[in-house]
Amino acid sequence: MKKNTKIGVIILAAGASSRLGYPKQLVEFKGISLLQHSIDVAESLEFDVKILVLGAKEDEINKKINSRNFELVINENWEEGMSTSIRKGISEALRIERELEHILMLLSDQPFVNKEKIQELIRVQLNNNKQATFSEYAGDVGVPAIFSREIFSELKKLKGDQGAKKLIYKNDFQFGTVHFENGNFDVDTTADVELLKRMEEE
C-alpha cells in the first residue's frame, strides 16, 4: 500500500444464510471458518480501520471467531438487506477515521480470497485513480472490491438488498477490474458446502 493513503476494510457478514439453514459464516474450509478466513486475510494487511458487520445470529458467530483487531458492528436491520450493512459499515469506519480515502469490502463466504488478490485490487485502484475496482469472475463483477471516497455517499444511498455492483450501471461511474479465479464460488446451499468439502480434499 502507498504510504499515507488511508484505507479501511469492511467485512459484510450480517446475513441469515436462509437457504443454507445455519450460519454460512461458520462453515469450515481447511480447518477454519469462512468468516475467520476473511478476517485473517484482512489482518495480514495494514488497514487504517477494520470493521466487521454482524447481524443474524451474531452471538453464536461472535463466540466462534477471533475478530482480532476488527471493530465489531451489529446491524440490527440486517433483514432489510445488504445495503443496510454497507451503510452501517461505512458510517462506523468514517466515525473512527474521517479521513479515509478508500474502503475495501469483503464477504464472509468466499474461501478463495487471499492476500495477494487483495493487494492487487488495492494496487490497481491506487494506480488507476478510479472510483472503484471490482473483482471480475465468470463474466461478472463483484466483491472483493475497493471504493474511493468520492462515492462513499453513493454507497450510503443503496436500498434493500442492493449491493455496490449497482453503481456500475451509472453512466458516469468509472471503475476498473481485477480477475479473480474462483471468485464466483460462495456458499449459499448445502450443495455448495458439499462441493467445498470435495475441493478441500483435492
Rank of each mutant, 00 (worst) to 15 (best):
K24T: 12
I11S: 00
S108L: 00
G55K: 06
G81H: 09
E58H: 15
T133G: 03
S67R: 14
A42D: 05
W78R: 09
G139I: 05
Q110F: 11
N75L: 07
F112K: 05
N129K: 14
R95V: 10
G89S: 07
L104G: 05
A16L: 01
N66H: 05
G183W: 02
F152S: 08
I96W: 07
E43G: 05
E79N: 11
I103M: 07
K88Y: 02
T190I: 15
V53K: 00
W78C: 06
V124H: 03
I90G: 01
K63T: 13
F180L: 12
L195R: 15
A93S: 10
P23L: 04
Y137G: 00
E71G: 10
V193W: 09
K88S: 13
S148L: 03
N75Q: 08
N75W: 00
I103E: 01
I32A: 09
V73M: 07
M82L: 15
V113K: 06
A13M: 06
L104W: 01
E136M: 08
R95T: 15
G15S: 14
E58W: 13
K130H: 12
H37W: 05
R87W: 11
F112W: 03
D40P: 07
R198Y: 14
V124K: 09
G55C: 06
T84S: 10
M105T: 14
R19H: 08
S148A: 11
G176N: 05
T5R: 14
G55Y: 08
S17V: 08
P111S: 08
L196Y: 04
N77R: 06
L52K: 05
S33M: 02
S33G: 04
F180M: 14
F47M: 00
F134Q: 02
V124A: 06
A145C: 00
Q119R: 15
Q36L: 03
L195N: 12
A56E: 12
I168W: 07
F29M: 04
D40I: 09
N66G: 10
F112V: 05
N129C: 08
N127M: 13
G176P: 01
A138Y: 14
L107D: 04
N114G: 08
D59R: 14
A93M: 06
E60W: 11
I51T: 08
Q25A: 07
D172P: 08
E92Y: 10
L35Y: 00
Q125K: 10
I90N: 00
G8K: 03
I65S: 05
P111H: 01
K24H: 14
R198I: 13
A56D: 14
Q162K: 09
N184W: 11
G15E: 06
T84G: 01
K24Q: 15
E150K: 13
S44V: 06
